[in-house]
Amino acid sequence: MGLKEKVQDLLGNDILDIVEYRGDLTIEVPKSKNVKILKALKEAEGLQFDFLVDIVGVDNSALYEKKKAKKKKPKGDEEAEEKEPVEEGPPPPRFEVIYLLLALSTNERLRVKIRVSEDDLEVDSITGLWRGANWPEREVYDMFGIRFKGHPNLKRLLMWEGFPAHPLRKDYPLEGQGEQRDFDDCRFF
């Protein structure tokens, strides 16, 4: 039984989406069940994803805007419009949080993805499962503003305290907005 079947067996209906690309398995799960599912993956016999490699955040807003612009573009070309079915309904959630897991005994890897919408930026912390999730979660909070409920020390990790924005969001300019760390008392000129 392959990894895909094992994961499907274990999680059943909790899997919203499962993609295998060049041997790498990615599953998407509901945001509210992230702790439960990760605990199951960590402890299940035969899987034992016991090592948390990293937690990363993704801001998909630019991707969605690109797709939107692409759909509008072909005016005279009706064939192109037919090929891409117009998706109706609410726009997909803006952010993603991705957990990268590794099973040390079998050397298998798994990506677990949850989607986080902009109006509900709270995710349950998994520091109870892996203490090493502490800093990655702080980094995601720093860069994207996603808050982790139950985190013991949710402060900015990379930017200084009091930094006003979340710089890896797509609507944040690369060169910043002129933020300076307050060092008036030590400015020379």
Binding site: G176, E179, F188
Partner: peptide, 15 residues
């Protein structure tokens, strides 16, 4: 590194 996190030259901090 013309980015939000990098100080653009140290000459305005120290001579």
């Amino acid at each position: 590194f013309r980015t939000y996190s990098t100080h653009q030259g140290i000459s305005d901090v120290i001579p």
